[in-house]
Design a protein around this nucleic acid. Structure first.
Lengths: 148, 148
DNA sequence: CGAATTGGTCAAGCAGCTTGACCATAGGTC
DNA sequence: GACCTATGGTCAAGCTGCTTGACCAATTCG
C-alpha cells in the first residue's frame, strides 16, 4: 500500500471519527442535556459500571489527575455525578453517576445508534458489523484521547 | 444493532483514530521534525497541492480564520510555509509549503504508512483495503476536526 | 460611484489542560 | 508500634489554542 493511500485512509478515518463525535454530541444536546462536552461522555462510560476514582478516570482519559478532578468538579456541579467516600480506602473518593448522569448516558447511546444507523443505510448492516470487527482487532488498549 | 453495540463501535473507532494520530505524530517527530502538532499535518495536506488562503484553511480545519491565521504564523515562523501575494486577489495571500514543509509532509506519509502496515499485519491487506472502502463511503465532506 | 462582501490581521478573553506544591491515608519494613 | 515511601486527591498558577470583537484593505455588485 502506497504512502499516499495510507494518508488517504488516515484522513478518512479521522473525518469519520470527528463526524461521529459531533453527531453523538448533537444528539445528546438535542435530547435536552446542556453543558456536556464529548469528553464527559467518555468519563461517563468509565463511571457507568460502578463508579470510579479520579485517578482511574485520569488514566482512562489520558490526562493528569488534576485535569480529571476538574472534569469531575464540573459534572458534579452540573448534577451528572457525585463524589462518595470510597468504601475500602479513606483517601479515595468514588465518583458515581446520578440518575441524570445515567439518563445522559442512555441519550448518548441512542445518539450513537442513530449515527451508526446512517452508516448502515450506506454500507448495509453486514458491512457495519465487519467494520466493527476490524476496528476492535486493531483498537489499542489505550486511553481514548482526542484525535488531535 | 443495539445501542450498546453502537457505543462499542464508536469507542473502538475513536480509540483507533486517537492511536493513529499519535503514531503519525510520533513518526514525524522521530524523523526529526520538531514543534509540529497534528493539526499542522492537516493544514499541510490542504496546502500541498498549490497553496491555499487562510480562509480556505480555516474552513478545511473547521476553525475561525483568526485561529487559522495564528496557525499559519506558527508554521511560517518554524519554516514550514511562507506567505506570498495572491496572484489574482490583492487582498488575499497564498500560503505555500517550503521545501521543509514538503519534507515534513512526506515524513507524515511514511509514518501513516507504517501505522497502516501494522494494521495489515493483523487484518491482512485485503481487509485494510475493505476498511478503507467502507470509510470513504461514510466519510463526510466535512472539515477534519479533533475527535473531541 | 457607493454599499455590501470578502480576505486578513490585531487585541483581548476564555476554556481546558499542564506543572508544582501540598495534605491525608495506606502499606511495607524494621 | 514507628517509620518511610507510595498513593489518592486537591489547590494554585501558568500556558496554549481557540474564540469573539473590532478594524482595515481590496473586491464585487447594485
Amino acid at each position: 500500500m502506497q504512502n499516499s493511500e495510507a494518508i488517504a485512509l488516515s484522513a478518512a478515518l479521522l473525518a469519520v471519527a470527528g463526524e461521529l463525535t459531533q453527531r453523538i454530541h448533537d444528539g445528546v444536546v438535542a435530547r435536552g442535556f446542556e453543558g456536556v462536552r464529548p469528553a464527559h461522555g467518555f468519563a461517563f462510560a468509565r463511571l457507568a459500571p460502578g463508579g470510579a476514582t479520579v485517578t482511574d478516570l485520569a488514566v482512562h482519559l489520558g490526562v493528569t489527575k488534576q485535569a480529571a478532578s476538574q472534569l469531575v468538579d464540573e459534572i458534579v456541579r452540573k448534577g451528572y455525578a457525585e463524589r462518595r467516600p470510597h468504601p475500602d480506602d479513606a483517601r479515595a473518593r468514588l465518583v458515581v453517576l446520578t440518575e441524570l448522569g445515567w439518563a445522559c448516558t442512555r441519550a448518548a447511546e441512542e445518539a450513537a445508534a442513530d449515527a451508526v444507523r446512517a452508516w448502515s443505510d450506506v454500507l448495509g448492516e453486514g458491512e457495519v458489523r465487519a467494520l466493527y470487527g476490524q476496528l476492535v482487532r486493531i483498537a489499542p488498549y489505550r486511553p481514548i484521547k482526542p484525535a488531535w
